[in-house]
Simulated scan of single mutants.
Amino acid sequence: MFFRFFHRNWVKATGHVLDSRVHSVRDSNVRWAYVVQFTGPNGQDTKLEILEDVHTLGVAVSATVPLLVSPDGRKAVFDRNDPQINAVEVVKRNTKADEERFRRQLGD
């Protein structure tokens, strides 16, 4: 709820992940930071470091990811509500693909 409230005026954009690194490790939880290139609201290509969000999956180097960009283009976050990287949707999609693969192996 707060995510949508704080990013209500932000613009949707698509970014390309250029690099990643471990940002921090706490209590065996690893948090990643990504360098993402995107075209900002002002039309300029921008590169920013974006921290991993616990609600997202499927972010990897050379992937195309949905973003929310601030109106001035200085900040960006992963669009956690987009089904392409939403953790719940990714797990559902992978589970369904596994079930279909298993059925094909059985010959049904």
Rank of each mutant, 00 (worst) to 15 (best):
F2Y: 08
F2W: 08
F3R: 03
F5M: 05
F6L: 06
H7R: 07
R8A: 11
N9P: 04
N9C: 06
N9F: 15
V11G: 02
V11W: 09
K12F: 14
K12Q: 11
T14G: 03
T14Y: 11
T14W: 14
T14S: 08
G15W: 00
G15V: 04
G15M: 06
H16N: 06
V17K: 02
L18E: 13
L18S: 07
L18Q: 12
D19M: 06
S20I: 03
S20F: 15
V22T: 13
V22Y: 09
V22M: 06
H23A: 08
S24R: 14
V25A: 04
V25P: 02
V25Q: 08
R26W: 13
D27E: 14
N29Q: 13
N29I: 15
R31N: 07
R31I: 15
R31S: 11
W32F: 11
A33W: 09
A33E: 10
A33L: 13
Y34C: 01
V36F: 02
Q37K: 10
Q37T: 15
Q37V: 13
Q37M: 11
Q37A: 14
F38G: 00
F38C: 01
T39V: 14
T39L: 06
G40W: 03
P41D: 08
P41Y: 05
P41F: 06
N42H: 13
N42E: 10
N42S: 14
N42V: 10
Q44V: 12
Q44L: 13
D45S: 10
D45C: 04
T46A: 05
K47P: 05
L48M: 09
I50Y: 00
L51R: 07
L51W: 14
L51Y: 15
E52F: 11
D53W: 08
D53M: 05
T56Y: 04
T56I: 10
T56V: 15
A60M: 12
A60K: 09
A60L: 06
V61T: 14
V65E: 00
V65A: 03
L67V: 12
L67Q: 01
L68M: 15
V69D: 00
S70D: 10
S70I: 11
P71A: 11
D72G: 09
D72A: 10
D72C: 07
G73Y: 11
R74A: 13
K75N: 12
K75E: 15
A76I: 15
A76E: 07
A76D: 03
V77R: 05
F78Y: 07
F78S: 00
F78H: 01
F78A: 01
D79Y: 02
R80I: 15
N81P: 02
Q84P: 00
Q84V: 13
Q84H: 07
I85E: 00
N86I: 11
A87Q: 09
A87W: 05
A87P: 01
V88I: 12
V88S: 09
E89N: 08
E89Y: 05
E89K: 08
E89V: 14
V90G: 01
V90E: 04
V91P: 00
R93Q: 11
R93Y: 05
R93F: 11
N94L: 12
N94K: 06
T95A: 08
T95H: 08
A97K: 07
A97M: 09
A97L: 09
D98S: 08
E99H: 08
E100S: 01
F102C: 02
F102Q: 03
F102S: 05
F102E: 00
F102N: 01
Q105M: 09
Q105K: 06
L106I: 06
L106S: 03
L106H: 02
D108T: 00
D108W: 01
D108Q: 03
D108S: 01
D108F: 02
